[in-house]
Design a protein around this nucleic acid. Structure first.
Lengths: 258, 258
DNA sequence: TAGTGGTCTAGACCACCTT
DNA sequence: AGGTGGTCTAGACCACTAG
C-alpha cells in the first residue's frame, strides 16, 4: 500500500502518449483522468471507432486505481463521447445512423416514427462571413465561410429548408464536393477530422418567405418552425451554424424535460 | 461502528418502513435499492424537502454496502429526483423557483435572460374530458377534468396563451381556487401531493387564432410557437396536459442536444 | 467535534464476448 | 480459455456543515 500509493517517483516510463497525468492537489483524481482522456480525443490520438485500453491498463499507465478510471469513463459515456460494450471494451463514439437520428434530428411524424431525410442541395458558395455568421461561429473579421442551401424531404415531401454555414478554414476544399451525404456529422468527422460533440438550439415560429413557401409547397406567410443550431466540438469550438425552417403540419419537434 | 457495519443478521428491526428489500437474483443490487427508494418516494414515505437517512444507515437497513446505496442514489440524483448537499445529507428534490425555471420553462429572451412569467387566468371550468384529453391523460370514458385558460406575461407584455387540463380526481376542489400561484408544480405538490418528475414536449409552429391574436396583441394568422407538454409523475402517470402558444418575436425556446 | 457526503483504493466475483 | 466491462464489498481518508 505505502509503496504503491506514493507513485513511482523515480521511474517514469517515457512513452509517446501525448498527455500525461500530473497530480494536481485540490482537484479530484478522476477529473484529472477525464481531462487527459478528453485531451487525447481532441488531439485525435484516439479517433471515433477506436477501442481504448482496458480500465486496468489505463489505471496502470496513470498510476491510479481501476475504480478511478471507471468513474472518469462513465462520465464521458454519459456525455455520449464514449461507448462501452460489455465483454469487448470501451470505444470512442461514432456517428452511426441511429446516433445521428436520435441525438441530432428531432422531428417526428404525427404517427411517431422518424426517418433520415433526403436532401437536395440548392446552392453551395464560398464567401466572406457576414456579421452574424462571425458572431455565431466566433470568426475573425474577414474570415471566409462555406454557405449551403438545401431542401430536405421526408416521405417524399419537402419539409425543411436549411441554411448551413461552415468556417472555410476548417473544411478545406469542401465547396468542390458535388454530392453531400445525408449524415453530415459523420462526413465532417471522416473527411475533415472534425467531431461534433454537442449543439445548442433555439427554436422559434416564423412566417414563410416567398422562396421558402415555393420550395415547400405552402402559402407564403404560413407558419414555419425555425431551428437555429450551433454545433460545437468537444473542446467547445463552434464548427457549424444551421438554420432549419420546418413545415410542422405533419411533424413535431420533440424534447424531454426533467 | 463495528456493531453497525456488520448488520444485524439475526435481529431484524421490525420498523414500519413500507417497502423492504428482497434480493432477486439476476437483477443488480443497486437497481433493487433504487427501486425501493423510488417506491418510498411514490408512497410519499419521503416527501420533497425531507432528508434521507445517511448512506451508511440505508446500507445497514438494506444489508448492502454503502457503495451500492451510493450508486443507487447517484442515479436518482441524475434524474433530478434527489439532491445531495455535502456535509448535510441527501434530500428529496423540491420545486424551487430556480428548478422550475431551469427544468420546465424554456423560453429565453433575445438578450439571454429568463424570468418567471406573471399569469392571468381567463377561465377555469370543470367538465367531461374530450377525446384527445382522455388520450393524453390516459383517462377512462366519462372522466372529468379541470380546464384552465390563461395568459402569461413577460416584462409586462403578454407572450403566452396557455390551456391546461388536469384530471379532476387527482385535484379535488381545485376549481374553487381563486388565485393560482405562478409555480404550479410546487402547488400540485404542496396541495395535492402530486410530484411532477418529468415531461415530454412536442413543439410546432401554428397560426394565431383570432382570440389568441387579440390576447397577445398581434395579427391573426401570425406565427406562434406551440409547446404541447404532458407532465408525468415519478411512476409515469400523466397528471397535466398543457398547450402553450408563444409569441417568439422576442423569445426563443432553447434546448441542448448531444 | 461529530456526522454527512466525496474520493480513492484494492480485491473478489460475475456476465459477456471473442478466439 | 482469456480478456473485457459490470457489480459488490470493505475500509481509509478528505471536505464540508452544523451546533
Amino acid at each position: 500500500m505505502a509503496g504503491k500509493t506514493d507513485a513511482p517517483k523515480g521511474r517514469k516510463p517515457r512513452r509517446a502518449k501525448p498527455p500525461r497525468l500530473k497530480r494536481q492537489p485540490g482537484k479530484p483524481l478522476y477529473a484529472q483522468v477525464e481531462e487527459i482522456i478528453r485531451k487525447r480525443l481532441i488531439d485525435n490520438y484516439w479517433k471515433p471507432g477506436d477501442m481504448l485500453p482496458s480500465e486496468f491498463d489505463l489505471a496502470a499507465e496513470l498510476s491510479v486505481s481501476q475504480g478511478t478510471v471507471r468513474k472518469a469513463l462513465n462520465e464521458m459515456v454519459a456525455e455520449n463521447l464514449l461507448e462501452r460494450r460489455q465483454g469487448l471494451g470501451t470505444f470512442v463514439s461514432e456517428y452511426t445512423e441511429r446516433r445521428a437520428l436520435f441525438l441530432y434530428f428531432n422531428l417526428r411524424h404525427r404517427d411517431g416514427d422518424q426517418a433520415m431525410p433526403m436532401s437536395r442541395t440548392l446552392a453551395c458558395e464560398s464567401r466572406k462571413a457576414s456579421e452574424s455568421e462571425r458572431a455565431r461561429l466566433q470568426l475573425d473579421p474577414g474570415a471566409r465561410v462555406i454557405a449551403l442551401h438545401r431542401v430536405r424531404e421526408l416521405r417524399g415531401q419537402p419539409v425543411i429548408v436549411e441554411r448551413l454555414t461552415l468556417p472555410q478554414n476548417l473544411f478545406p476544399g469542401l465547396g468542390a464536393v458535388t454530392k453531400l451525404p445525408e449524415n453530415l456529422y459523420r462526413f465532417y468527422q471522416g473527411e475533415f477530422g472534425i467531431t461534433v460533440a454537442k449543439a445548442a438550439e433555439e427554436v422559434r415560429a416564423v412566417a414563410a418567405e416567398p422562396l421558402e413557401a415555393q420550395l415547400l409547397g405552402i402559402m407564403p406567410e404560413a407558419p414555419l418552425l425555425e431551428i437555429d443550431r450551433v454545433a460545437v466540438t468537444i473542446d467547445g469550438r463552434p464548427v457549424e451554424w444551421r438554420v432549419s425552417r420546418c413545415n410542422t403540419t405533419d411533424y413535431a419537434y420533440v424534447a424531454e424535460r426533467g
